[in-house]
Design a protein around this nucleic acid. Structure first.
Length: 289
DNA sequence: ACTATGTCCTGCGAGC
DNA sequence: TGCTCGCAGGACATAG
């Protein structure tokens, strides 16, 4: 399932291939749950627009487009099985294709999603002039200036003090807290398990009970594992592929994820699997305390 | 405000 | 071999 490293790989790949191209046509499948914004709005906003950039925010791909000096952000969340592919027209259209953007060089950006947990939407950066001057009553500075910033903090850049503060007073297991996108966004099941293993912390530990030292270790481990995964093009479990349909390699480096019963690569103890927060959770009962 | 659980959806693999 | 059935999970809704 695409998490931060996979989404980053895809966004970078699509960016390199389509930046500067104009969208000349938009087709959508009509499957209602795929579209968080009405399909008519998506088509209207993107048709004729020029692609400025494609980047990652959390697990979301943000395609920024410009049309008559108006910026629009097309948000693509891949869910579990979503793919974003840059294709030539003669390539066969995969089953479960839900959106196709035709570019001015006839190539196509295709969104394919068999399981339909993915979501497409339009985000319009609000110009400050248009926002009513009422936002003084919001207790915390939310996303004020408009461009999409996601629900939580970026794991790769969050300072240690902020990272530690995220987990203060959280009684939920640390694994569940890592999966909470309104705290850190971008971390999913694979990298939560892998980071906790590298930090030698049990997924079941209550977040608020972790020491500052343990949280520092966790942050370092998380950043390291995400960076390494990005370098290897992500983890291809189930059917993840990048913008060209190429698989990643980080699954070969997994130390616990989907290694139930196999020996721990550090101590040889069989990797244990439990269910936590409704998710398969893998850890080494010896190494992780 | 926080926490836990159910729901969506389809492909695949285990088991018979 | 061929079938059924249960599981996988990210985000959101709902309930406590």
């Amino acid at each position: 399932m695409p998490e931060l490293p996979e989404v980053e790989t895809i966004a970078n790949g699509v960016h390199a291939r389509v930046r500067g191209r104009r969208i000349v046509g938009v087709w959508t499948s009509g499957k209602p749950q795929t579209f968080k914004s009405p399909e008519t709005e998506i088509a209207a906003a993107l048709t004729g627009a020029k692609i400025q950039s494609v980047r990652r925010v959390g697990k979301t791909i943000v395609m920024t487009t410009e049309h008559d000096a108006t910026l629009t952000e097309f948000l693509i969340h891949l869910g579990m099985t979503g793919r974003l592919l840059v294709c030539t027209p003669e390539m066969p259209v995969a089953p479960h294709t839900h959106a196709v953007l035709t570019l001015d060089d006839m190539r196509e950006v295709r969104f394919v999603d068999p399981r339909r947990f993915g979501r497409l939407s339009i985000h319009k950066p609000q110009s400050p002039a248009h926002t009513p001057q009422k936002d003084t009553d919001s207790p915390q500075p939310k996303s004020k200036e408009g461009h999409y910033t996601g629900p939580g903090r970026e794991p790769l850049t969050i300072p240690l003090a902020d990272f530690v503060a995220l987990f203060r007073n959280r009684r939920t297991p640390i694994k569940a807290a890592l999966l909470n996108q309104s705290l850190l966004h971008g971390v999913g099941n694979i990298y939560a398990d892998e980071a906790l293993f590298r930090a030698r912390i049990r997924p079941t530990r209550q977040a608020a009970r972790l020491t500052r030292t343990e949280l520092a270790k966790l942050r370092t481990a998380l950043i390291a594992v995400l960076r390494q995964a990005i370098q290897l093009g992500g983890s291809s479990v189930s059917d993840y592929v990048d913008a060209d349909g190429v698989r990643g390699f980080f699954q070969l480096r997994h130390k616990v994820y989907q290694r139930t019963g196999e020996p721990c690569r550090v101590c040889g103890t069989p990797i244990k699997r439990i269910t936590l927060a409704g998710r398969g959770t893998h850890f080494c009962p010896t190494c992780q305390r």
